[in-house]
Design a protein around this nucleic acid. Structure first.
Length: 290
DNA sequence: GTCCAGGCTTTCC
DNA sequence: GGAAAGCCTGGA
């Protein structure tokens, strides 16, 4: 690794850390539980741990953690074993991606908990980011475990599988997604869908398995595969990616299936990274919005 | 088998 | 009042 790690006072410092911008990583829509603090640092709870991240100059400070948790949890969570310089160099051969990457050059694709991703993206269907975040917090507060202060872990599949859909709907404001959440939690908890089968299989195999879950369709399954199962070629096509792809590449109104095929053809095994740069660029700039 | 319209909760702009 | 990181159902 080309950066140095220092552990001091309940902190882990990554010196001269390239390709790591907290704002880009946490505002590009892949994670819903990072909260921006007044000092522009970000705090989350993941894997039962609370951690705060701030960028000072070229250094990244992980507050409230230690070297052991860094090695066991955060190294993989932040995808630190991957060379984003090489990915960006390859994708930048495409002039449109070059522009999107210049805009969100500090993006990394996180490796998050499978169950949390499954439920979070079921909630994301026909929904907006502020409300998605709110529902996830309410779900955690109601069905998760209090870790410290006002931080609650994401609930387990077992607990959600036994929840009353009407309670989830009314307390957590998830609307029509209530039954989907409970039923999918049950199918995860009873082992109908096993994570190991998705980890070991291809993107297409994982997609087929995930789409048997209520509330998981083509777009949501690609998000889950990319953000939890390390499938780099997954290319979620949402309204923003549809807009930016039609605006820059296809030059006409199309459909999500065509755009997915185009993304796979142009970006190949790096489609998931391309999607994140494009999504962040399109949403922040309002590209293609009517 | 594929394609598409309509419906779905609630919040935010 | 329309849009929002879509999915599900039913009909052509």
């Amino acid at each position: 690794m080309e950066y140095n790690i220092i552990e001091v006072d309940n902190k882990v410092i990554l010196k001269d850390m390239l390709d790591f911008n907290p704002e880009h990583i946490f505002e590009c829509g892949q994670a819903f539980r990072w909260k921006k603090e007044e000092d522009d640092s970000y705090t989350t709870i993941a894997y039962g741990k609370v951690v705060n991240v701030e960028k000072i100059g070229e250094d990244i400070i992980l507050n409230g953690t230690n070297l052991e948790d860094f090695q066991n949890i955060w190294f993989d969570y932040f995808d630190l074993g991957r060379d984003y310089g090489a990915i960006k160099a390859e994708l930048s051969k495409d002039p449109i991606l070059e522009e999107a990457i210049a805009f969100g050059d500090g993006i990394r694709v996180l490796n998050q908990d499978p169950f949390e991703m499954i439920i979070s993206f079921i909630i994301s269907a026909n929904n907006g980011i502020p409300r998605i975040k709110n529902s996830i917090e309410l779900l955690s507060k109601q069905y998760g475990e209090n870790i410290i202060d006002d931080y609650y872990s994401f609930p387990t599949a077992e607990v959600l599988s036994q929840a009353d859909p009407l309670d989830i709907r009314e307390i957590c404001r998830v609307g029509f997604r209530d039954v989907r959440i409970v039923q999918t939690s049950g199918l995860i908890h009873n082992g109908t869908i096993k994570y190991e089968d998705i980890f070991s299989g291809t993107r297409d195999e994982g997609k087929e398995l995930l789409m048997t879950l209520p509330g998981v369709g083509p777009k949501v399954s690609d998000c889950i595969l990319l953000f939890a199962f390390n499938k780099d070629e997954a290319f979620p096509v949402d309204v923003w990616v549809k807009r930016v792809m039609e605006h820059f590449y296809l030059k006409e109104d199309t459909n999500v299936k065509l755009i997915g095929a185009h993304g796979a053809r142009v970006f190949g095994s790096l489609a998931g990274f391309a999607q994140q740069y494009l999504f962040y660029y399109a949403r922040e700039q309002g590209i293609g919005k009517k």
